[in-house]
Design a protein around this nucleic acid. Structure first.
Lengths: 285, 285
DNA sequence: CCGTCTATGCTACAATTGTTGCAAATTGTC
DNA sequence: GACAATTTGCAACAATTGTAGCATAGACGG
């Protein structure tokens, strides 16, 4: 039996399995490398499961041993039947099929550039501004709506008053009405910059509200009057720029804020998660 | 140190070694898979050498442990290796200041894993489904709203009828009303899966509408009944999972569709852009 | 409410792991 | 041939491995 067959077998059996067995089974599907390369005990701990559960899973799937279940995972990695050679080739070959890998590669390069392009002082300043703010408002339009949404979603987990600007049709001015010195505005954009960002930075400046900009350039119009600017890169082999790096920067910003706030904020995040779960936001396991 | 470097090191040292050590060293070079996959004792017996010799070889090559020598051979077999592991090692400093870089690194690793985790046949099938569809509906909730938004935004540039599901408060059922075999549904989610995805996949299945899933696992409940599943990884050093990779996969999917459609679609994208510009969507330079 | 049954974890155990110290064997040198 | 130096193997070690048995916890039906 080869690895593919085992995986199918697992997926077929998945609904019938009990909670713990299913958790283990999913881990096998998701981390096939580990199955072959590490011991059962450390595999179990990585999967958040007891070693016993893995033994039982093996039995349940019809294998005599753990070794018997593990064997197909080993063979998968052996260079003989190389799915990796094919994979590596796929990364190199041209044509439509390569577009996927190329796009991902470009995004990864953008992330790396974003890591290098922001120095820690700027990051610290951005965090300080956002932490002091009574209210945080985030502006991002068109393709930058995604990173804006991410930032709002994450900050809501540990900040009182965070909102996305430009929610429902054209009420932007109303949403900006109460903004003042004690708040903070985050603007996200890259060339060409959405027109809607104009009024946002404009009112922010007039009301002396601190501005954190996420942009593709220090010279971006939205960065001109910002107190801090964090950079991200949008290079892409395709016809549209990539905003994956912007999303990653937004996440990293939220992660940094959380890290600075320490344990209290962390438990607050956990509470929020627990609330969501209790409210039935998620599918049951 | 990666496997290539170890191999070079071995070959360089080879002439200096004694008979037994050389025999062992050659075996390491010739059977790299075995080094990672079997225990030192059976490796020794396969090489016709005593276990002790292997330990001594490791020392001789400058490794602290047998585990240290073995590690590069393991990494060689792992799928998500690439140049990212090295980068992650470079920035392992702790503290709140490092959170930013760590978060970005994790996201980059997730991108790499997503590239390796999706084989090109699946990608092709996903594209085919979406290209055949008269209408495309995308479902993504909570944190997965961001990648859903990205996919919709991009596909709109070259597809007639694309929309985000669950737009305004609870009209999900209405939006699903007309769905049928000739349409396509994209569902995006990871553990824990938003409850709203339940009805979506359910109606898709009932109406026999093809489903493309973007998920963190082949074993995801939303992937179970999907026609194709594209994987992304959400590993993160922080308290919340990262969706940067999901965004990148969504972009890559759009890029692939565009590449497959050829020049005509490309000009269509350019026209859309030009329209936006003419309509005054962007700030003037 | 009780009893049954399944699911899960804990503990113990023999087998196997990587490693060490020491003795035997081999090598080269005078 | 005798000596030291090096190379090699053996036996034993603590640690870790995969597995089995027992006990507990929880679910379900009467």
């Amino acid at each position: 039996m080869n690895h593919g067959a085992v995986q199918e077998r697992i997926l077929a059996e998945l609904p019938e399995l009990s909670a713990e067995l299913r958790k283990a089974a999913r881990f096998l599907v998701d981390h096939p490398d580990d199955v072959a390369l590490v011991s059962m005990r450390v595999l179990a701990s990585r999967a958040g499961v007891t070693p016993t559960t893995l033994v039982r899973l093996g039995r349940r799937l019809g294998f005599k041993d753990w070794a018997a279940l593990r064997a197909p995972f080993e063979n998968r990695l052996r260079s003989g039947n190389a799915p990796f050679a094919a994979k590596a080739d796929a990364l190199v070959q041209r044509g439509p099929e390569a577009a996927f890998a190329e796009s991902l590669n470009a995004a990864a390069a953008n992330l790396a550039a974003s890591g290098a392009g922001n120095d820690s002082r700027e990051i610290t300043r951005a965090c300080t501004i956002l932490e002091r703010a009574q209210r945080i408002r985030v502006a991002g339009f068109r393709s930058c709506r995604a990173p804006a949404h991410v930032l709002v979603y994450l900050c809501r987990m540990f900040c009182r008053d965070v909102a996305l600007l430009g929610g429902d049709g054209g009420a932007l001015e109303v949403e900006l009405a109460g903004i003042g010195r004690t708040d903070a505005i985050v603007v996200i954009g890259f060339t060409p910059y959405s027109r809607e960002l104009g009024p946002v930075v404009e009112t922010a400046r007039r009301r002396r509200a601190p501005v954190v900009a996420l942009a593709d350039s220090m010279a971006a119009p939205i960065a001109q009057h910002a107190d801090v600017t964090l950079r991200f890169s949008t290079e892409s082999p395709s016809f549209f720029p990539s905003i994956a790096a912007a999303v990653a920067v937004a996440e990293a910003l939220a992660a940094t804020m959380l890290a600075r706030r320490g344990a209290a904020a962390a438990t607050r995040v956990r509470n929020t998660e627990a609330d969501l779960r209790a409210l039935g936001a998620y599918l049951p396991e």
